[in-house]
Write a protein that binds this DNA or RNA. Structure first.
Lengths: 178, 178
DNA sequence: TAGTGATTTCTGTTTAAACAGAACTTTCAG
DNA sequence: CTGAAAGTTCTGTTTAAACAGAAATCACTA
């Protein structure tokens, strides 16, 4: 697969954005390429297209599979692995959010809870500081619980809610001022 | 200011999390420390507490001010700058989201729009690929528009909506299945 | 079961970011 | 106007991640 200028711009930008959000540039570029590709690609095709080392592509594909964003397929009469990305963008977003919650938010909650627990028998930490940690715990818990609730909804329901935007508040008569 | 074990755990974890989300470790640590601190701190106090070079602290504080997360204050009869972090967590979150939208989402929208525009007179890019870029544009626009709408709501309204969780859908009779 | 194609793992190199320390600039007090 | 304190900028070093290429493993076919 050869990159046209448009594809190249897309892939490079995605790599750059990935980097800003803590995702390896190669990983993000490969993901972008697979998202664009109408058909599954082999590791070698990817390496050639993006001018990356074969080994680098292998590792990155493994990571993308770990995220659940890329799956492996096979073509009849072809021993090679072919890779394709989820193309449903809503699915893609939910997958990423779910995974980041698992990897980053949940451990943070654990850490905060432990801090609050230990704060009980701790004499040296300023009470105001303890209070701030507790506030942070409550805050992260609120966000996390909200997400867990939203996750139970149908995709179509979520889309409807999102399209309603701020009207949601009006309909529910939650708006105080304008 | 001396770090107690609890504070140290909190600050180190925050630094680690920052790194995973594309924020410099020192920047995240300093932000965590200022969030915890009941009173504003000078750059030197921060450097001593976190064992960072004075220059590093200076740069990081600049960055945090750029994000709008930290402000500069002065004490009477003291020439030194004192720094304090926003402590309202809701404010903090909105500030971060707003800033990331400005720095990352908006440029991405620009890139996607340009791709779609250029796709018009482009013969070499597969129509399916063009379609996928357009779908991505629509998707990011939907998310962005939703955010812009929610941003107009009062903080209290947002909190109420969030606390309602999935009940929102039920009340609006949007749920199809369970 | 030998041999080839495909993939992964290992190891060393490259690269970019993070950081420290020094030099420099600014600000204010006396 | 001078000197000291505070803050910033510059430059070189360190460190960690990203990456390439080689070696090793695995998987299948003939």
């Amino acid at each position: 697969m050869r990159l046209t200028p448009i594809m190249e711009r897309y892939v490079l930008h995605w790599g750059e954005m990935g980097a800003r959000w803590g995702v390896n540039r190669s990983v993000a570029q490969i993901h972008a390429l697979l998202y664009l590709s109408p058909k599954p690609l082999t590791a070698e095709e990817i390496a050639d297209t993006l001018a990356l080392a074969r080994s680098n592509v292998s590792t990155s594909l493994r990571e993308l599979q770990g995220w659940g964003l890329v799956t492996l397929t096979h073509a009849l009469g072809d021993r090679r692995d072919h890779f394709e990305a989820k193309t449903d963008l809503w699915e893609m977003l939910l997958t990423i959010v779910e995974e980041r919650k698992r990897r980053e938010v949940d451990p943070t909650l654990t850490m905060l809870r432990q801090c609050v627990l230990d704060a009980g028998e701790d004499k040296e930490t300023d009470p105001e500081i303890k209070a701030r940690i507790e506030r942070m715990l409550t805050f992260v818990e609120t966000l996390s619980n909200w997400y867990v609730q939203m996750r139970t909804l149908q995709k179509s329901t979520l889309v409807s809610l999102m399209k309603m935007g701020s009207k949601v508040a009006k309909v529910l008569k939650l708006t105080r001022a304008a």
